[in-house]
Amino acid sequence: MSRPEIYSPEGLRIDGRRWNEVRHIKCAINTHPASSDGSSIIEQGNTKVMCNVVGPAEPTSSSGGGGAKSNTNSFANENKVTLSVKATVAPFSTIDRRKRSGNDSRIQEMCLTIQHIFEEAVMGHLQPRSQIVISLYILAQDGGMLQACINAASLALIDAGIPMYDYVCACTAGMHDTEVLLDLNRLEENDMPFLTMATLGATRKVSLMQLETRVGVDKLEPMMAAAMSGCHYLRQIMDAQVRKHGKNRLARVGA
């Protein structure tokens, strides 16, 4: 037996999905109410990301750390909120267990990407002189790490009650020969060119498009279309979860 077949002639992928099916999604908000203002966990297939949001709060001089607070704070932006994103990759997140250094350039680049996305999506002008710290914990990786991080951060920010224009939802799409595949897992990601797209809610406004591999320009459009519909589908699922949580909460707080 040679390598596993990425896309069978019958139209099935390695894990039995069709081309336009996303992986199983499980998400929850307010998972860590004691340690953060907003928190979430999202599982997309075997990729699992946890997110904690602290803020908006008084900025600390070492951004987000437990550093001493000073009176004249250079980190405080007078006009808008300061966002900072930190990501931690768990050593057990891949099949081969290995310790990861904190300053992996790929992770730092991802954090910066996420920071830029949410600087646009969060209504930062409403929270001058304050700081929001987004901490991401990547617990399991099976492809689509960036998309899971964006979705988790989006949910956690909403849970924290931070004003946003809309959900930011992300999804990947790849191109296998001439077939578009939606929401790739790790095996598929390694085998074909793919892009990650994030949209602002169910609109056609794209807040991120990242393509790190070479792909024919004629193939780009079907990939983008598939990724966008994937984003819109994810918004529905995330929205349903937020509503479900909100309804439960309203019933209990009762005032």
Partner: peptide
């Protein structure tokens, strides 16, 4: 008018606001 937070609608006369479920 769109909502920017997850919460319930509150209105006082002609003023519409959304009270977040959680928040600082």
């Amino acid at each position: 008018t769109y909502s920017s937070v997850a919460g319930t609608i509150t209105r006082v006369n002609k003023l519409l606001s959304v009270t977040p479920l959680r928040g600082r």
